[in-house]
Write a protein that binds this DNA or RNA. Structure first.
Lengths: 335, 335
DNA sequence: CTGTTAGCGCGTTCAC
DNA sequence: GTGAACGCGCTAACAG
């Protein structure tokens, strides 16, 4: 698709490819002012672009990284990619992108496919960071984002899950709720869910799990009334002031769909707050209190960290670090 | 990062690289059952993965495409990428991803960077498809998505802009509004905005542009009252029933922020409908009527089209086609 | 100042 | 079952 190569340019200018190469690399001392002008002219006229792949090959460098995200349709993901891509641009890296669609098998395929390529490093937003495939990855060239592995062998960038939820929940506790509930997709050992739940428990001092409400992933209100029934039962108690903390924006949406179908209104009939912020939460009346996480910074830092590792050319795997990106509390009128 | 090469495997098995290559390609006739077993064993134990890049090189094939999106943070974009990535997976292509952040200069850089790579084709969600850079692109290996160029030289996938807006607006017209307004970011010759506006005009039969309201891109209500004042003036008229159609979800958000600050409520004080659908529009009370576009299908079809072009190995540029992806009307209570 | 040429990487494939 | 040339486009050491 790119017609011109260094040979074509050399031919057009009646010089050798070496001269063209020197020109491309700003090595002007090696040619006359005339050929320099001629080359500048020809290259701009032909729109010739040297192949970076060939360049990397010749220089024995590699400026491409592989990215695997758990689910591109999750609104959390876009800003992460944006951050990675911003840093890639600045560092002169290109990125090969894959999406696992929340499917662990697909994630394994993607990671393997990326490793087959000549890729200098990997940034992974994992479906399951405790899967076997992660044993084959080295901390020399990998950064994980969002979900943490229990093994903790690879550098990971996370947000302030436990602390921020604990602080927000504490604010709810102060409002004298009779019962607070944490609503989540099945915990399934997913670190983000567990850490947020831990924050909730720290603030409420609930001992068991009877204040944990699970909503199925891709919950369909019309065919499965389990979650709706639980919520209905909780809100149906007379003279009890109830509050919910939802584990992310999609769980919040499930809760609101259910409470609307039951004809309860948040803020007046019950209190609510959520992890994650999106603009619509400010448009809803009353506004919804939430925890804003800086997903862009997650991606940005991940690429920063990866580049430093790659270019420091370590020979043995560094000890895994965890970097925590702070969140921000947004208090509105929903509780 | 991938330690093992075909040479390592050959050495470990005490055979030549040729034999390993034959094994990898299922060419078992060329070796004894013993070496076949030995190789199977060694390859699984070492987790050896042949480099697809080298393979492409040797076979003179190229299974990677480049993608440039206008703005990854636009919620329209994720499903498009998801569709592209799904098809890439199915076709065995990998994708190199870039984001232009709504900056035309950046878009030019990205496209050039992608062309520098050995990339078999390009899918572009353009910032400005009428920019000069598009003259350098060939319809042999490019597909454009969402925004159309006036020159119409390159295959493009769009949605049903004019027709769907016209139909939705017609429904508003039936409700006896005294005035309907189309709200948009500056038209700036952007095809999606113009086509949607055209649909609005078709249904309302307004002649001039006095029913077109422009909200600045990244409008900040606190420092710029221009748009707010216009809305205030329109809604302040006594005894007039007013309706708005917003050009996308972000413009809708701007409108709602403004009307909320003016203490007007949609549905009761004025009617509203919008292009684009997101789940929160169903959570807002009253629910917001909108036009659902199938962004996933846009990406999916784009990769389909691109693959067909690339692999048909045409020698002259095909005449540009426009493929229209249908939308769906969602009627709720907002007008 | 300019040209020649042997690599760079790793798999493929043909002649033996 | 093997050795070795080959595919790509660029780089850089060396020769002139």
């Amino acid at each position: 698709m790119n017609k011109f190569t260094i040979k074509d340019i050399a031919k057009l200018a009646n010089v050798s490819t070496a001269t063209v190469s020197y020109f491309l690399n700003g090595n002007y001392a090696k040619m006359s002012i005339n050929t320099r002008r001629k080359l500048a002219d020809i290259i701009s006229k032909t729109n010739y672009l040297p192949s970076t792949t060939a360049r990397n090959l010749a220089k024995n460098e590699n400026k491409t990284i592989g990215v695997s995200v758990a689910d591109i349709t999750n609104p959390f993901t876009s800003p992460v990619i944006s951050g990675i891509s911003e840093r890639c641009e600045q560092y002169g890296y290109k990125m090969v992108f894959t999406n696992s669609n929340n499917d662990e098998r697909r994630e394994i395929e993607n990671i393997n496919r990326l490793r087959q390529e000549e890729v200098a490093g990997l940034i992974i937003d994992p479906v399951n960071p405790d899967g076997d495939i992660y044993n084959q990855l080295s901390n020399l060239y990998t950064v994980i984002v969002d979900r943490q592995s229990k093994r903790n062998l690879i550098d990971t960038i996370v947000t302030d899950n436990t602390k921020s939820v604990s602080e927000m929940t504490a604010k709810m506790v102060q409002k004298d709720y009779d019962d607070l509930y944490f609503i989540s997709w099945p915990l399934d050992e997913v670190s983000t869910r567990i850490h947020r739940y831990t924050g909730f428990q720290q603030a409420t001092h609930y001992a068991g799990d009877d204040h944990l409400l699970i909503v199925p992933y891709n919950y369909d209100l019309t065919t499965d009334t389990s979650f709706k029934d639980e919520v209905s039962q909780i809100l149906g108690q007379t003279n009890k002031k109830i509050g919910f903390f939802t584990m992310n924006s999609r769980v919040l949406q499930e809760l609101l769909k259910v409470t609307q179908s039951l004809a309860y209104n948040y803020a007046s009939d019950f209190g609510v707050a959520t992890y994650e912020e999106f603009e619509w939460m400010q448009l809803m009346r009353p506004g919804i209190s939430c925890i804003r996480q800086d997903s862009f910074a997650i991606g940005y830092s991940a690429m920063e960290m990866l580049k430093n590792k790659i270019e420091s050319k370590l020979t043995s795997e560094p000890k895994a670090k965890i970097k925590v990106i702070p969140t921000k509390e947004i208090i509105r009128e929903s509780f």
